[in-house]
């Protein structure tokens, strides 16, 4: 089968993938791969965990794509699957930044430089005052620059619910930032 993938919209690729066109499914996944990686990386730290979340998500997408009714919602649907898979890994592995090693003077096999860990520790400290659903919304809004409408689609909730959750989260963060003198 030959086609020019560049001319094909995401919706057309989804339609073809639903009809078991494997080539279209491959291109579809590659089109969202960087976004998936970037989103998983916001909460997971080891490459193995990030890949596991992506792998599990792609398998679920492949198995369930024919159930997706509206092709326009593919992207947000895929990201929702990824967020759920990432949360499962966080809970399963009780991911804790403290376990990452630091350098010694001569050798290290740490996957992450200490500054990457410190930067994520700072962010995790900031997000600590929020519950899990508030963390997801704040991460998607400020970290991934999604709109509240996008976030509502990803999480399959109403935009009103997302906005009120954002508002609560912002109040908590403001209080934490002021108490900790993080803002100069």
């Amino acid at each position: 089968m030959e086609y020019n993938a560049k001319d094909m919209s995401l919706e057309e690729l989804v339609r073809r993938a639903k009809r078991k066109d494997d080539a279209s499914f491959t291109i579809l996944i590659h089109k969202i791969e960087n976004e998936m990686y970037s989103l998983a990386k916001m909460r997971l730290y080891e490459n193995e965990d990030i890949y596991e979340a992506m792998q599990n998500s792609i398998i679920l997408i492949y198995k369930n794509i024919k159930k997706l009714k509206d092709e326009k919602l593919f992207r947000t649907w895929a990201m929702r699957i990824l967020i759920n898979e990432s949360l499962k890994i966080i809970k399963k592995k009780k991911i804790d930044l403290e376990k990452y090693t630091t350098f010694d003077e001569k050798t290290s096999v740490s996957d992450y430089r200490i500054d990457e860990i410190e930067s994520r520790k700072n962010l995790e400290c900031l997000l600590k005052c929020l519950n899990e659903s508030e963390k997801v919304v704040i991460t998607l809004y400020y970290g991934k620059k999604y709109t509240t409408k996008d976030i509502a689609e990803i999480l399959a909730e109403s935009e009103g619910t997302i906005k009120s959750r954002m508002s609560r989260a912002r109040l908590k963060l403001k209080k934490y930032i002021e108490e900790e003198h993080l803002y100069e």
Binding site: N34, Y51, Q55
Partner: peptide, 24 residues
Amino acid sequence: EFLKKSFKDDSCDSPFTDEIDNLM
């Protein structure tokens, strides 16, 4: 502004393209 700056722009290419191809 504070929250935007706190979240680094982590956008970068996925390093798993080959592995994902093989998965699919």
